[in-house]
Amino acid sequence: MKLLKVFTRGLWNEIPPFRLVLGLCPTLAVTRSAEDGLGMGLAVIFVLACSNMLVSSLRNLIPRQVRIACFVVIIASFVVVVELLSQAFFYPIYQSLGIFIPLIVVNCIILGRAEAFASRNGIIASGLDGLGMGLGFTLSLTVLGSIREILGQGTFFGAEVMWSSFRPFSFMVEAPGAFVTLGILLAIMNAISKSHQS
């Protein structure tokens, strides 16, 4: 029961990047289309779950003073794994995500979870925490990517979805669209949780 809670927390109560306003750069940069958002999300799930589990299993070995350095090395190694695998198997996605794949290493969510959760909890719980947070992040990125792709290009995962006379708002695929869409989504989330509370 407790493990289930650990897992589902990342999906709503603490869903990144909405509740934890962290990891914004990839959120804004790679949500030009739903596919890119999903690809980035999957890469983050992999790095987050693996690094959480490894950090957790080594938590008693790592001296406190060098823990951050150790976490960074572990996270960076999994990022390189993702870089190599995405080049070998998903080259087009690797091309469109560009430098944002190596930049997963500075995604604050990952280091944050390693420090706040994995270094204090068991392997299974840490793995589930990583999976939950990663899934939440993927969900957010895919939703954001879908909105921007549908309004900005009139397509969804590359397929035409809008009526034929629809004129795409190119504003949405550019940087300003990213900021404004995320801001509005954040406001909607705030409004929903406010009405839940009262």
């Binding site: 080594l58 070995l61 790592i62 001296p63 003073q65 060098v66 350095a69 150790c70 090395v73 572990i74 960076a76 190694s77 390189v80 794994v81 190599l84």
Partner: peptide
């Protein structure tokens, strides 16, 4: 211990990669 652990982690990661 600090040095040993850090070196060990770096080496293992390097070899694996």
């Amino acid at each position: 211990q600090m040095i040993v652990v850090l070196t060990l982690i770096c080496t293992v990661c390097g070899v694996a990669l």
